[in-house]
Design a protein around this nucleic acid. Structure first.
Lengths: 221, 221, 221, 221
DNA sequence: CATGAATGAGCGTTCATTCAT
DNA sequence: GATGAATGAACGCTCATTCAT
């Protein structure tokens, strides 16, 4: 079950930024927040600097230019996320547990760092670099990991064999993504039981239940 | 079944476009394509004009400024999409047929006009105006329509009553969205049976099957 | 004798700029003046625009960037100068007349457009592009033309055969250059007889006399 | 004859420079090299520091700012050069010897420290401070010294009296300058006999011969 | 209507200079 | 002395927008 694969993090952000933190990470975190809010193109370097509380010239001590900030975010953060995901996929747990773990990982990541996800999902996709195979592959790995779980489930006889695992993995990831995006944008609400932002068991269990058992009423005989 | 859910369109696109077409629509269509390719911020007014084959000064005869183009796209195109969707939701068909119609509407819309969707989904969200309640409501209607279908299905006893219809509608829309986004970005493939881009029954049926019956293997007695 | 090979010009500049003139040439002329005054690196694009009396954004309608302005100056102006020079060198006049013509060409060019020369001599040399063989060759042609005149004079028996024509051409060009540079900088004065800036016979004849006959007193027998 | 016209120096350059040398001079020497290569405006303070192998902050312990470096170079180095020159001019040697000494001084200075000369000639001219009378006078002294030699020669009857000594001094200096500039830029070659970079008697003698005896063939009776 | 020359605010980036260590 | 992180003015360049033709 989803122990607590939340090392996704990276920033002990919590209200005001008082303590430790090297400038480089400070800039990255600020950039994530700013890119999420106004998009990569809409964000000015000076916005990032103001968010970080530094002079904008300093940004150029740590990064060659604005694009390098975006690329660094992708490389450093997405990789960590993928590894957590693949750790789950590679495990020996039953399929259902894996799906629950992934749903928890995704929903919690989104919930803890919504800007993080907005940047990864909305901005990096369209950065010119995204055309590069490297990034394509990185995103492909996300779907691939989930598809592998499903395929393993089919082979073990736990899942129906007549559904395309690729399609199902896309549906699963997409469902999770939209559930949170709706929240991020304030358009929708999730039935969050616990508000101890650490877990979101209500939604996690519900979405896995939905994917495993379907919507259709079963005439309980 | 989905009679002709294609009034989504807006442009009688058909190979080369030398024919009739008022400049205003021409500009809107060009803008959609350009915004989709490089994002709202990344697109220059001159890019739109070049795509439309007109002088960039002319754009300002038809639109006050660049932002008005984006807003117009949203208002004119999204509204048409929503009305088609609500027409399906309001119908008297069985739940399953409605879901199939919606899946077909969404998947085909994406398939026929991927730029269209990229702009609505990726750009308009981010435009500052999106904070405005009007736009929020417009997006909310999308989820609301689907949720209403599900709720009706629950009330009719066709669907399980223990799943939150809001959550399920988000999952369903999200699944559809990601299935296509993956294609748009070239990251994933859908099991398209027919290639007569008009329908995509393989994926449409599969995703509805998935949501209705779930992934889990049923011990067929 | 040097009729008036002054087609070096290019700009009917004369006090205030009232009349005709396409913007592109206006910008080039302004750039020459500004580069001459503060050097290529020291000149801001806005200085050029102010000098031309236009908005600086317009500069970028006509030139890709600042460097292209410098390169264009070189290509368009230096070429014209070289052709005039080579026309003289290729002629059938006696050596002395050719040297007089060249001295007049150079001294008058310098005199009429001192900025012109400062830019060619001081700025273009150090532009990165100067490393390119094309520019090297262009400068080499200057020395080559004069050396050819001298060599022809030697073959005709008019000039001493024991002096290296390359060295002498460098000395001759250098003398002319410095004579004017001194004036431009206001450090020295030339014995300009006529002030009808069209000719400068005093200095022209004097420098040719110097190079042909030398400084040494001849014991007139 | 040119005893030892090498006190022009300033830096005991000798292969690798690990040895003694106060930082201040180290910075000046590095600045000369860097200014010569990329121009005053094109050179960054950090370039100078890197060339000197020190942190760029240290530059500001020794100089108020970048401009002061340039001014210091001028004042310290140009003065030394002028004094050497005036020592020659004030001497009691025959005119020809003085011209040979000066040609050797200049050609060797250029040859030994081409950057030195490029900076003096190309950069300092342009620095805004050059408008200041002090610098103007300093350059004027160069021409004045040579003119004085020539005038003395005329008075002694060794040189023709009908040539303006000012003009001739400019021509002489200019010839020397261009002979070397061509070499520095790699555009031209001098007929260097000896390659022991200490002297360049071929070119030195040739240019003095040219200026004293002229180019014209003399019908040796 | 249509064009594209012209304008100038705005942003990315550079780099001289300061200053805490 | 020595370092290099930090600052911010300045400049190259872009591009939305205006307007004369």
């Amino acid at each position: 079950m989803p122990a607590a694969n939340l090392k996704v993090a990276g920033a002990p952000r919590s209200g005001a930024d008082p303590p430790r933190k090297d400038k480089r990470s400070l800039i990255l975190d600020s950039a994530i927040r700013v890119f999420a809010q106004m998009g990569y193109h809409g964000a000015r370097v000076s916005d990032i600097a103001r968010e970080a509380g530094i002079a904008y010239g300093l940004v150029y001590h740590y990064f060659k230019n604005k694009e390098e900030i975006l690329n660094t975010i992708f490389e450093e953060r997405w990789t960590g996320f993928l590894e957590a995901l693949e750790g789950i996929a590679e495990g020996r747990n039953p399929t259902q547990d894996k799906l629950v773990s992934i749903a928890a990982l995704v929903l919690n990541a989104y919930r803890l760092r919504p800007e993080w996800v907005k940047v990864l999902v909305l901005e990096i996709q369209r950065s010119s670099r995204f055309a590069e195979p490297e990034q394509m592959r990185a995103v492909g790995r996300l779907f691939g990991s989930v598809a592998r779980i499903l395929r393993a489930g089919q082979e073990a006889g736990a899942l129906r064999a007549d559904l395309d695992p690729e399609l199902a993995s896309q549906a699963f990831i997409g469902a999770l993504e939209t559930m949170i995006t709706g929240q991020v944008l304030g358009v929708t609400r999730l039935p969050a039981e616990a508000d101890d932002a650490a877990t979101d068991r209500g939604a996690v269990d519900a979405v896995v239940d939905l994917f495993l058992n379907g919507l259709k009423a079963r005439t309980t005989r």
